[in-house]
């Protein structure tokens, strides 16, 4: 099979997989807090979080700057 030149070996990132939910046996896991899937603390290769102004302020800016909602044609 031909491989895409740009494709890495595996698509990343991934959610952390709890031991109880290994794909070999995707059964209902026990409901204990320790088995709750958690987000990786740092995704491999992920850039250091940029120093950004307060997100609430940025959201207010975005709401100010985007146009008002506009009726769209029905699609498909």
């Amino acid at each position: 099979m031909m491989e895409s030149k740009d494709r890495p070996a595996a698509i990343e990132p991934t959610l952390v997989l709890p031991a109880s939910a290994a794909p070999e046996a995707p059964t209902k896991p026990a409901e204990t807090p320790t088995e709750v899937p958690t987000r990786p603390e740092r995704i491999p290769g992920e850039k250091e979080k940029e120093s950004e102004p307060d997100i609430d302020e940025q959201i207010k800016r975005i709401i100010r700057e985007i146009p008002d909602p506009t009726p769209q044609p029905g699609g498909e």
Binding site: A9, A10, P18
Partner: peptide, 30 residues
């Protein structure tokens, strides 16, 4: 399972997300 990288990624993430949805969807923020 074991067929190729995309398939294995999909199966792993599919299993994980169903568990997360069942227990606490908040974990899926992002």
């Amino acid at each position: 399972l074991g067929r190729d990288a995309d398939t294995d990624w999909t199966l792993r993430q599919w299993a994980t997300i169903l568990n997360a949805l069942e227990m606490d969807a908040l974990r899926l923020d992002g």
